[in-house]
Amino acid sequence: MLTLWPLRKFNSEVYWKIEGYFFHWLLAMVSLWSYSAGYDIVEVGDDISDCLEEKTLIIANHQSTADVPLLFACFNPKKNVLPNIMWIMDSLFKYTNFGIVSVLHKDFFIMSGKAKRDQSLQHLAKHIIDAYVPLKRRWMVLFPEGGFLRKRKAVSQKYAEKMNLPKLENVSLPRVGAMQVIMDTIGPNSTFNNNANMTAKTDNNSTG
Protein backbone atom coordinates (compact mmCIF):
# COMPACT_ATOMS: atom_id res chain seq x y z
CA MET A 1 0.00 0.00 0.00
CA LEU A 2 2.95 2.32 0.55
CA THR A 3 3.80 1.90 -3.13
CA LEU A 4 0.29 3.02 -4.02
CA TRP A 5 0.30 5.92 -1.57
CA PRO A 6 0.84 8.60 -4.29
CA LEU A 7 -2.29 7.30 -6.03
CA ARG A 8 -4.30 8.30 -2.97
CA LYS A 9 -3.43 11.93 -3.68
CA PHE A 10 -4.33 11.83 -7.36
CA ASN A 11 -7.24 9.39 -7.44
CA SER A 12 -8.42 8.42 -3.98
CA GLU A 13 -11.39 6.43 -5.29
CA VAL A 14 -9.14 4.04 -7.21
CA TYR A 15 -6.73 3.82 -4.27
CA TRP A 16 -9.47 2.77 -1.84
CA LYS A 17 -10.87 0.32 -4.37
CA ILE A 18 -7.50 -1.41 -4.61
CA GLU A 19 -7.02 -1.26 -0.85
CA GLY A 20 -10.41 -2.92 -0.41
CA TYR A 21 -9.40 -5.81 -2.67
CA PHE A 22 -6.14 -6.30 -0.79
CA PHE A 23 -7.93 -6.14 2.56
CA HIS A 24 -10.48 -8.70 1.39
CA TRP A 25 -7.80 -11.08 0.13
CA LEU A 26 -5.88 -10.87 3.39
CA LEU A 27 -8.96 -11.56 5.51
CA ALA A 28 -9.95 -14.38 3.16
CA MET A 29 -6.61 -16.05 3.84
CA VAL A 30 -7.18 -15.74 7.59
CA SER A 31 -10.66 -17.21 7.19
CA LEU A 32 -9.02 -20.38 5.88
CA TRP A 33 -7.68 -21.02 9.38
CA SER A 34 -11.14 -22.17 10.44
CA TYR A 35 -11.44 -24.60 7.55
CA SER A 36 -7.89 -25.89 7.94
CA ALA A 37 -8.71 -26.60 11.61
CA GLY A 38 -11.70 -28.67 10.54
CA TYR A 39 -14.49 -26.19 11.29
CA ASP A 40 -17.39 -25.69 8.90
CA ILE A 41 -19.45 -22.52 9.23
CA VAL A 42 -23.23 -22.93 9.11
CA GLU A 43 -25.43 -19.85 9.10
CA VAL A 44 -29.01 -20.02 10.32
CA GLY A 45 -31.72 -17.43 10.75
CA ASP A 46 -33.17 -14.68 8.61
CA ASP A 47 -31.97 -13.81 5.13
CA ILE A 48 -29.63 -10.82 5.51
CA SER A 49 -29.01 -10.22 1.81
CA ASP A 50 -30.87 -6.90 2.05
CA CYS A 51 -28.20 -5.67 4.47
CA LEU A 52 -25.21 -6.32 2.21
CA GLU A 53 -25.24 -2.88 0.62
CA GLU A 54 -26.61 -1.01 3.63
CA LYS A 55 -24.95 0.55 6.65
CA THR A 56 -25.19 -2.31 9.12
CA LEU A 57 -23.98 -2.70 12.69
CA ILE A 58 -22.75 -6.22 13.48
CA ILE A 59 -22.78 -6.99 17.21
CA ALA A 60 -20.69 -10.06 18.01
CA ASN A 61 -20.07 -11.90 21.26
CA HIS A 62 -16.36 -12.14 21.98
CA GLN A 63 -15.42 -15.48 23.51
CA SER A 64 -11.82 -15.71 22.32
CA THR A 65 -9.42 -14.86 19.50
CA ALA A 66 -11.04 -17.64 17.48
CA ASP A 67 -14.10 -15.42 16.98
CA VAL A 68 -12.28 -13.25 14.45
CA PRO A 69 -11.36 -15.88 11.81
CA LEU A 70 -14.85 -17.35 12.23
CA LEU A 71 -16.37 -13.96 11.42
CA PHE A 72 -13.97 -13.62 8.48
CA ALA A 73 -15.19 -16.99 7.20
CA CYS A 74 -18.82 -15.85 7.48
CA PHE A 75 -18.19 -12.52 5.77
CA ASN A 76 -15.84 -13.76 3.03
CA PRO A 77 -18.43 -15.17 0.57
CA LYS A 78 -20.70 -12.14 0.92
CA LYS A 79 -20.20 -9.74 -1.95
CA ASN A 80 -18.53 -6.41 -1.13
CA VAL A 81 -18.67 -6.93 2.64
CA LEU A 82 -15.00 -7.34 3.57
CA PRO A 83 -13.66 -4.53 1.34
CA ASN A 84 -16.15 -2.10 2.87
CA ILE A 85 -16.15 -3.16 6.51
CA MET A 86 -14.94 -1.25 9.54
CA TRP A 87 -13.81 -3.01 12.70
CA ILE A 88 -13.85 -1.46 16.15
CA MET A 89 -11.16 -3.00 18.33
CA ASP A 90 -9.10 -2.33 21.43
CA SER A 91 -6.31 0.19 20.92
CA LEU A 92 -3.73 -2.40 22.00
CA PHE A 93 -4.27 -4.25 18.71
CA LYS A 94 -2.78 -1.29 16.85
CA TYR A 95 0.63 -2.56 17.95
CA THR A 96 0.17 -6.16 16.79
CA ASN A 97 1.27 -7.68 13.50
CA PHE A 98 -2.02 -6.80 11.80
CA GLY A 99 -2.27 -3.35 13.37
CA ILE A 100 -0.77 -1.55 10.38
CA VAL A 101 -3.28 -3.26 8.08
CA SER A 102 -6.17 -1.96 10.18
CA VAL A 103 -4.62 1.50 10.38
CA LEU A 104 -4.36 1.66 6.58
CA HIS A 105 -7.93 0.38 6.24
CA LYS A 106 -9.20 3.06 8.64
CA ASP A 107 -10.53 0.71 11.29
CA PHE A 108 -11.09 2.29 14.69
CA PHE A 109 -9.03 1.57 17.81
CA ILE A 110 -11.02 2.29 20.94
CA MET A 111 -9.34 3.01 24.28
CA SER A 112 -10.54 1.12 27.33
CA GLY A 113 -10.75 2.32 30.91
CA LYS A 114 -12.91 4.87 32.68
CA ALA A 115 -10.34 7.65 32.39
CA LYS A 116 -10.31 7.54 28.59
CA ARG A 117 -13.87 6.40 27.91
CA ASP A 118 -15.47 9.76 27.09
CA GLN A 119 -12.56 10.93 24.96
CA SER A 120 -12.48 7.65 23.06
CA LEU A 121 -16.20 7.81 22.32
CA GLN A 122 -15.79 11.35 20.99
CA HIS A 123 -13.00 10.09 18.73
CA LEU A 124 -15.28 7.28 17.53
CA ALA A 125 -17.99 9.74 16.51
CA LYS A 126 -15.41 11.84 14.67
CA HIS A 127 -13.92 8.78 12.98
CA ILE A 128 -17.33 7.71 11.71
CA ILE A 129 -17.88 11.10 10.09
CA ASP A 130 -14.29 11.50 8.83
CA ALA A 131 -13.61 7.94 7.63
CA TYR A 132 -16.55 5.53 7.72
CA VAL A 133 -18.97 7.80 5.87
CA PRO A 134 -16.72 9.32 3.17
CA LEU A 135 -15.13 5.93 2.40
CA LYS A 136 -18.64 4.52 1.94
CA ARG A 137 -18.11 1.72 4.40
CA ARG A 138 -21.09 -0.56 4.93
CA TRP A 139 -20.73 -3.04 7.77
CA MET A 140 -19.32 -2.06 11.15
CA VAL A 141 -18.29 -4.73 13.66
CA LEU A 142 -18.59 -4.04 17.37
CA PHE A 143 -17.76 -6.37 20.25
CA PRO A 144 -20.03 -4.87 22.93
CA GLU A 145 -18.54 -6.85 25.81
CA GLY A 146 -15.34 -4.85 25.54
CA GLY A 147 -12.99 -7.82 25.68
CA PHE A 148 -12.62 -11.58 25.90
CA LEU A 149 -15.15 -13.41 28.07
CA ARG A 150 -12.49 -14.90 30.35
CA LYS A 151 -11.27 -11.40 31.21
CA ARG A 152 -14.68 -9.78 31.50
CA LYS A 153 -16.77 -12.47 33.21
CA ALA A 154 -15.84 -11.72 36.84
CA VAL A 155 -16.29 -7.95 36.42
CA SER A 156 -19.56 -8.49 34.58
CA GLN A 157 -20.98 -10.73 37.29
CA LYS A 158 -19.88 -8.33 40.03
CA TYR A 159 -21.65 -5.48 38.25
CA ALA A 160 -24.73 -7.66 37.70
CA GLU A 161 -24.91 -8.44 41.41
CA LYS A 162 -24.59 -4.77 42.29
CA MET A 163 -27.30 -3.71 39.82
CA ASN A 164 -29.60 -6.69 40.47
CA LEU A 165 -29.10 -8.04 36.95
CA PRO A 166 -28.78 -11.67 35.81
CA LYS A 167 -25.36 -13.25 36.25
CA LEU A 168 -24.42 -14.45 32.79
CA GLU A 169 -22.14 -17.44 32.27
CA ASN A 170 -21.57 -17.64 28.52
CA VAL A 171 -21.43 -13.93 27.73
CA SER A 172 -20.76 -10.77 29.70
CA LEU A 173 -23.04 -7.79 30.06
CA PRO A 174 -22.65 -5.51 27.04
CA ARG A 175 -21.24 -2.03 27.21
CA VAL A 176 -23.52 0.40 25.46
CA GLY A 177 -21.33 3.50 25.11
CA ALA A 178 -19.92 2.79 21.64
CA MET A 179 -23.23 1.50 20.33
CA GLN A 180 -25.00 4.64 21.56
CA VAL A 181 -22.43 6.83 19.80
CA ILE A 182 -22.84 4.88 16.56
CA MET A 183 -26.63 5.16 16.65
CA ASP A 184 -26.51 8.85 17.57
CA THR A 185 -24.05 9.55 14.75
CA ILE A 186 -25.42 7.55 11.80
CA GLY A 187 -28.45 5.70 13.16
CA PRO A 188 -31.94 6.01 11.65
CA ASN A 189 -32.80 8.98 13.87
CA SER A 190 -29.39 10.65 13.78
CA THR A 191 -28.78 14.19 12.60
CA PHE A 192 -26.56 12.84 9.81
CA ASN A 193 -29.30 10.66 8.31
CA ASN A 194 -31.92 13.36 8.70
CA ASN A 195 -29.68 15.81 6.84
CA ALA A 196 -29.00 13.21 4.13
CA ASN A 197 -32.73 12.59 3.70
CA MET A 198 -33.42 16.31 3.48
CA THR A 199 -30.72 16.68 0.81
CA ALA A 200 -32.16 13.78 -1.18
CA LYS A 201 -35.65 15.27 -1.02
CA THR A 202 -34.33 18.66 -2.11
CA ASP A 203 -32.49 17.10 -5.06
CA ASN A 204 -35.61 15.18 -6.10
CA ASN A 205 -37.74 18.31 -5.92
CA SER A 206 -35.19 20.24 -7.96
CA THR A 207 -35.11 17.49 -10.58
CA GLY A 208 -38.87 17.37 -10.74
Rank of each mutant, 00 (worst) to 15 (best):
M1R: 06
M1V: 07
M1P: 08
T3P: 10
P6T: 09
L7A: 07
K9G: 11
N11S: 04
V14D: 01
Y15P: 04
G20F: 03
Y21I: 07
W25K: 08
M29F: 12
S31H: 03
S31C: 00
L32V: 02
W33K: 06
W33E: 12
A37Q: 11
D40G: 10
D40E: 14
D40Q: 12
E43I: 12
D46V: 01
K55Q: 11
I59H: 01
N61I: 01
Q63R: 07
S64R: 01
D67G: 02
V68D: 00
V68I: 15
P69A: 02
L70C: 07
L70M: 11
A73Q: 10
N76T: 15
P77N: 06
P77E: 05
N80D: 15
V81N: 07
P83N: 09
I88F: 02
I88C: 01
M89C: 06
F93N: 02
Y95F: 04
T96E: 05
V101A: 00
S102R: 01
V103G: 04
K106D: 01
F109P: 02
I110C: 00
G113T: 05
K114C: 08
R117S: 09
L121W: 06
H123N: 11
H123M: 13
K126S: 10
I128E: 08
Y132K: 14
V133W: 10
K136S: 10
K136G: 04
R137D: 12
R138W: 13
V141D: 11
V141Y: 13
E145I: 04
E145M: 12
G147V: 11
F148E: 10
L149F: 09
L149V: 03
L149I: 07
K151A: 11
S156A: 14
A160P: 12
E161F: 08
N164T: 13
L165Y: 13
P166Y: 11
K167H: 14
L168A: 08
N170V: 13
V171P: 12
S172Y: 01
L173W: 15
P174Y: 09
V176N: 10
G177P: 09
A178S: 12
Q180Y: 13
T185P: 02
I186Y: 07
N189Y: 06
N189M: 04
S190A: 09
T191F: 08
F192N: 04
F192H: 04
F192K: 09
F192S: 03
N194S: 08
N194V: 00
N197L: 02
K201H: 00
D203S: 09
S206V: 08
S206C: 05
S206D: 02
